[in-house]
């Protein structure tokens, strides 16, 4: 499992990515992140919800209530235009970050 310190700056990006394919709710997002990371990264509950709050405050995501497939009423999130722009920004930032860090990484 990856340490949460290393990945901290990209939690928001991961959540936004998960919403690119359409609206989703807390557990589904967290489950998909785990699945996509091949069980190497599990986002803690508190990390997930502080990210939701932060993203919504910045206008990158919007929340609404909806009854899920199981009939349970849930809070759903969807990505906004601003969120999409922010996501793209983070992607190019990661490209540069990766390039830079890679210069200092070698197989020993």
């Amino acid at each position: 499992m990856i340490s949460s310190d290393v990945i901290r700056g990209y939690n928001d990006t991961m959540i936004l990515y998960m919403l690119l394919g359409g609206e989703s709710y807390g557990y589904e997002i967290s489950k998909n992140i785990r699945r996509l990371s091949e069980e190497k990264y599990v986002m803690k509950e508190t990390t997930l919800y502080s990210a939701f709050t932060r993203l919504e405050k910045n206008g990158y995501i919007a929340s609404f209530h909806k009854d899920g497939e199981s009939g349970k009423r849930r809070t759903y999130y969807r990505i906004t235009e601003e969120g999409l722009a922010y996501y793209r920004e983070k992607c190019s930032e990661w490209q540069v970050t990766q390039e830079v860090v890679n210069k200092f990484i070698k197989e020993t």
């Binding site: 807390g26 557990y27 967290s30 489950k31 509950e45 919800y49 809070t75």
Partner: peptide, 16 residues
């Protein structure tokens, strides 16, 4: 609100 949502998520996870 936060507490209720977190409980939902935890229950989902538990069920699964």
């Amino acid at each position: 609100n936060l507490k209720r949502e977190m409980l939902d998520t935890m229950e989902d996870k538990y069920e699964e």
